[in-house]
Amino acid sequence: MAAASVAGCTGATSSGHAPPVAMRTGNFTSRFRPQEPTGWSIAVPESAGGASPGPLPVALFLHGTDADHRMVFEDLDAAQVLAQHISRGGTPFAIAAVDGGETWWHRRASGTDTQSMLVDEFLPLLAGQGVDTGRVAVFGLSMGGFGALLLAAQHRLPGLRAVAAMSPAVWSQYDAGRSDNFDSAADFAANDVFALRPELESLPKRIDCGTADNLLFSVQDYVKDLPGEHEGGFHPGGHDGGYWRSILPDVVGFLGRTLA
Rank of each mutant, 00 (worst) to 15 (best):
A109G: 14
P92G: 00
Q115M: 14
A127R: 07
G111L: 08
E46S: 06
H69E: 14
V81Y: 01
P37R: 12
D132H: 10
V119L: 09
D66H: 15
A78S: 05
A94R: 07
V58R: 02
R108Q: 08
L123C: 10
V131F: 06
F32E: 05
V44C: 12
A109H: 08
A48Y: 04
P45Q: 07
F32Q: 08
G100R: 14
N27W: 14
P55L: 06
V138R: 05
Q115K: 13
V98R: 06
S87D: 05
H85N: 02
V119Y: 11
H63P: 05
A96G: 15
H106A: 10
R135N: 00
F61N: 04
A78W: 01
D113V: 07
T114F: 11
G130A: 11
D113K: 08
Q84A: 03
R135T: 02
W105V: 13
G101D: 12
E74S: 01
D132E: 02
T91M: 09
G100V: 09
P37H: 11
G89L: 10
E74Q: 04
M71Q: 13
L56W: 03
W40I: 13
H69N: 12
T91G: 07
G100Q: 14
G128V: 09
L82M: 00
T65E: 14
T91L: 02
A137N: 02
P45K: 01
R88S: 05
G50T: 10
R107T: 12
H69F: 10
F122L: 12
W105P: 05
G64W: 01
I95F: 02
S30R: 06
T91R: 10
G100C: 10
Q80L: 05
D68N: 15
R31S: 13
V138M: 04
I95Q: 03
V136S: 01
G54V: 06
D113A: 13
G89H: 09
G134C: 01
G130D: 12
L76V: 00
Q115N: 12
F32G: 14
A51V: 03
F93Y: 04
L82Y: 00
A137Y: 01
D120V: 08
T114S: 04
V138H: 00
D68F: 02
D75Q: 00
D75C: 06
H63W: 06
M117E: 02
G64S: 11
D77R: 02
F122M: 04
P55Y: 05
F73Q: 04
L76W: 01
A97C: 13
V44A: 04
G39L: 12
A79E: 02
V98W: 10
G100I: 11
H63K: 08
H63A: 07
D132Q: 10
R70C: 06
H106V: 07
G101K: 09
A48C: 04
G130R: 15
E36W: 15
P124W: 15
W104S: 08
S87C: 00
A48L: 11
R88L: 05
T91N: 09
V72G: 05
W104T: 03
V131P: 15
G89F: 09
R33S: 12
R33H: 15
G64E: 03
G64M: 07
